[in-house]
Amino acid sequence: MSDLADTAPAVPSPILAEPRPRVAAALADDAQLVAACRRGEARAMEMLYHQYKRRVFGMAHRIVGASDAEEVAQEVFVRVFRALDKFRGDSALSTWIYRLTVNAALSHLAKRGRRQEVSDETLGEMPAPPAVERDSGLAARIEAALGQLPAGYRAILVLHDVEGLSHEECAAILECRVGTCKSQLHKARARMRELLTPSIGART
């Protein structure tokens, strides 16, 4: 049930325009899972949790930072399970859960005030899986730069670029127009490039 593993795309050529693979919304499976969770089936709830834990926790982690990520993720899952009855199925379950996550993370930040995330802290508490060690230099720099972005940019970057969602999905999650989504993404990436310049090209 590793959500990221089975959706990780083959890295597209940086220059050639290729359609990005998207997270396939397994609507039928979701409906069954939701129904089972509504019936209070413990296994279904656990399955749903494991299916979404990395996405929810990862988003929370990258938007609010390491120290508050668990709190936010917990809040999100509690809301998910408590509000499943209200989930009407007119959007994909993942969209709905992402929306709850983004909203929870952003409102958490708003509550916490405009305190900027300390990037050292973010890096210090980042787990470093051995599989990505080869790339850890760039990954760490990207995480650090992410921490310095305005929260809204962080959200769109994480949704679109980290999670690999389409603009349509991002728009549904962020409850904005697709065009807004695109321009936000463009601005966010531009800001990131500035933060990472000049060293970004030094990738492996």
Binding site: Q74, F81, P129, I142, L196, I200
Partner: peptide
């Protein structure tokens, strides 16, 4: 090239695993 590198870098960020205490916390709150 930079933007593509950035995009690919973002896409291949390692997943962040939640601590095991997260599920316990969710259940307790529920």
């Amino acid at each position: 090239s930079d933007e593509a590198a950035l995009r690919d870098g973002l896409r291949s960020l390692p997943p962040v695993d939640p601590p095991p205490s997260l599920w316990a916390g969710v259940q307790a709150q529920l």
